[in-house]
Write a protein that binds this DNA or RNA. Structure first.
Length: 107
DNA sequence: CCCCTGACTGTCG
DNA sequence: CCGACAGCCAGGG
């Protein structure tokens, strides 16, 4: 592919996944933050859709929650276990604000 | 091109 | 605190 970027869409996906993979243990961020960090603006939905379709084990999807700190529907138990194992404060199917690593929301 | 769906988000009652 | 609503963006039928 010496010509232009036929994979423009795939490039965005790669960036998003890359941001998620850059998360370290105990670090939790929201879909919106991931989208912004990846430089795709308000594609928070695409982030979730992407993670849902990704089978890659190198992608720590459990470190991603929604803006309310809510865990992934249907996988709350597993996600909670993984987060707690990393020292994240999880309660009632959601992550506590204080447990966020890159939390960039008004406190 | 139109319509529906979604691991989202912010506002309102 | 929580449910209902509307807004936004991209993918799939």
């Amino acid at each position: 592919m010496t010509d232009g970027q036929r994979g423009a869409g795939a490039d965005r996906d790669v960036r998003i996944i890359d941001v998620v993979r850059s998360l370290r243990p105990g670090e939790v961020v929201s879909y919106g933050d991931i989208a912004v960090d990846a430089g795709v603006g308000r594609q928070a939905r695409r982030v979730g859709q992407l993670l849902a379709a990704s089978d890659d084990d190198s992608v720590p999807w459990w470190r991603v929650v929604n803006a309310a700190g809510r865990l992934v529907p249907g996988l709350e138990a597993e996600q909670a276990a993984l987060l707690i194992a990393e020292g994240v404060d999880v309660a009632g199917g959601r992550v506590r604000r204080a447990a966020y690593g890159r939390f960039r929301r008004h406190p």
